[in-house]
Design a protein around this nucleic acid. Structure first.
Length: 505
RNA sequence: GGCAGCGUAGCUCAGGUGGUUAGAGCGAAGGUCUCAUAAUCCUUAGGUCCCGAGUUCGAGUCUCGGCGCUGCUACCA
């Protein structure tokens, strides 16, 4: 079975993680859990991107050294991932000692290929922004649009450039040959349009200090993106191996999918494959750009003060609730909205009322009518479940988490409907024991499969379902077939699976 | 400005190649059952499918023109 490596972005550590960092990490974790469940060798990579001037500034403002600052931020990320039940295999840091050898080796390859050359970086530079401005965006008298009192100065620096222009055709060919290289479609269109208008070489070095020295010129440091993207490769190193490119590439390369935000699409869908082509390496199979989150219909931002604090959200509602909401309620790839009211409604409707209560009511009846033992087999929901399993697998493979949830909920609804239609309590009183057992078996077995299907999204909820079915919560996709519950086994007394969230007014 | 996409029930959205009474989930209202976490199940929502024109026997579904919204239009990540 081919190995699968998948990545989140390597988050920039200028600040603690926000919901925008948690979102793709949740998705990546779900995907990784799905692959592991199917028995695929899986490597889930996340980490942090720690170089660059912004970090240096953020650290200075807080009276820290850049490294101290990075260390602190990284702890913040790791603790959030723990709260959210994120099971990553590798946490790569671009300040790691093992990263630079990889970067150097990669740089050398690209350099020998003739794709790195010194050139002039010219333009109007705003000292306040610390960046070059496009001539057309300047105000009267070469004033900066963001700092209207600052006159931009003409700068003419010698930087090293990457010969991106050389790869225009190859990239266009890539997008043609591999139409799903960039997902979703709308993002692909943007990238194709961007590349079509012509690619310019871009500078990959800066005169700043917080970064790796340019291997052929120690007076400059590498542009953060150059070493950040290579973090994906460093992450593939086995802990015991020496940091060489050959070691990094031997097991997990090429990467199956990069899950990223649409804001960094260009770096992953244009620069990154071009860099890899230059180094003579295979390309990732897919770059998936997810959408952005809004809160109550508004863009989130520190200035508006309407950010979602993922720490607070998880602490209040739990990891499963947060994971479920964002994967179920927002189509992966599109923008989506968070509102606390919607959040509570969805969780109550789906997890507490439909799913939780189904488990509770059916287990309750098993206690009363079947002596707390798994009843004899029934097959009422077997067809529905077979469809669900098929759909769920297809959906996970294309990162359509919303579809996964919908397929699962359809079965849950059928389970509730089956009970209402057949009314086991009446059958029991009428002495139709065999029929009662078949119905209840069908529902419990469906719930076993529901737990399995939902495991990548709500791991601890699924574990709770399985424990209430007296099963070891070890989820394997080979068990996604009807009939796994063995009649006659003892069942515990039902416990509420997911407590309703009561809104306090 | 250019390019791309979108605008369908209160909310979030489905609606290949045009064809009977436009669908789902959530929310809301009414009802039902009693196994259950006052959960479930059933029914209802009478929606200008953004507007206008056109093509057609027939358009939410194609064409054109408006209006509105979003994204991209390169070196902060």
């Amino acid at each position: 079975m081919p190995a699968v490596a998948l990545t989140t972005p390597l988050y920039y550590v200028n600040d603690l993680p926000h919901m925008g960092s948690a979102y793709p990490t949740i998705a990546a974790d779900a995907l990784a859990r799905f692959y592991r469940m199917t028995g695929t060798p899986t490597l889930f990579v996340t980490g942090c991107d720690e170089h660059g001037q912004k970090i240096q500034q953020a650290a200075a403002k807080l009276n820290r050294t850049p490294q101290e600052h990075c260390d602190l931020m990284v702890e913040g990320f790791k603790s959030l991932w723990q709260l959210l039940d994120i099971q990553y295999d590798r946490f790569v840091r671009t300040t790691d000692a093992r990263h630079y050898p990889i970067v150097k080796e990669f740089f050398q390859r690209v350099y020998e290929r003739g794709d790195i050359y010194p050139g002039q970086q010219q333009g109007w530079y705003c000292v306040a922004c610390e960046e070059f401005k496009e001539e057309r965006e300047l105000l009267e008298g070469n004033k900066c649009p963001i700092h209207p009192t600052v006159t931009c100065e003409w700068r003419d620096e010698t930087n090293y450039f990457f010969r991106l222009s050389r790869y225009q055709e190859a990239l266009e060919e890539l997008y043609r040959q591999q139409p799903d290289f960039i997902q979703p479609q709308s993002r692909r269109n943007e990238v194709v349009a961007f590349v079509q208008q012509g690619l310019r070489d871009f500078s990959i070095s800066r005169y700043t200090t917080w970064g790796f020295p340019v291997p052929i010129d120690e007076s400059q440091t590498l542009y953060v993106w150059f070493d950040a993207l290579l973090g994906y490769i460093t992450a593939l190193l086995e802990p015991q191996d020496a940091p060489t490119l050959a070691n990094a590439l031997k097991t997990w390369y090429p990467i199956h999918v990069h899950i990223i935000g649409k804001d960094i699409l260009r770096f992953h869908a244009v620069y990154w494959p071009a860099m890899l082509m230059s180094a003579g390496l295979p390309l990732p199979r897919q770059v998936f750009g997810h959408g952005f989150l809004t809160k109550d219909g508004l863009k989130m931002g520190k200035t508006l003060g309407n950010t979602i604090d993922p720490f607070a959200l998880v602490k209040q509602y739990g990891a499963d609730a947060v994971r479920y909401f964002f994967l179920k309620e927002i189509e992966f790839g599109k923008d989506g909205d968070f509102s606390e009211q919607r959040f509570v409604e969805i969780l109550n409707a789906d997890l507490a009322n439909s799913l939780g209560n189904l488990l509770n009511r059916s287990l309750g009846m098993v206690c009363k009518y079947c002596d707390s033992k798994v009843p004899s087999r029934g097959y009422d929901l077997s067809t529905a479940c077979a469809q669900m399993v098929q759909q769920v697998q297809r959906s996970y493979e294309v990162l359509a988490f919303q579809e996964v949830c919908q397929a699962v909920l359809a079965v849950v609804r059928e389970g509730n409907k089956l009970i209402d239609d057949r009314a086991p309590w009446k059958l029991y009183k009428a002495g139709a024991q065999a029929e009662v057992e078949q119905i209840l078996y069908s529902v419990l077995e469906a719930l076993r499969l529901v737990g399995l299907c939902l495991y990548p999204i709500t791991p601890s909820l699924s574990s709770k379902i399985w424990r209430q079915l007296h099963l070891e919560p070890r989820f394997l996709w080979t068990e996604a077939v009807w009939g796994g519950l063995e009649p006659g086994r003892d069942l515990p007394k039902p416990q509420p699976l997911f407590e309703r969230i009561e809104v306090k007014q």
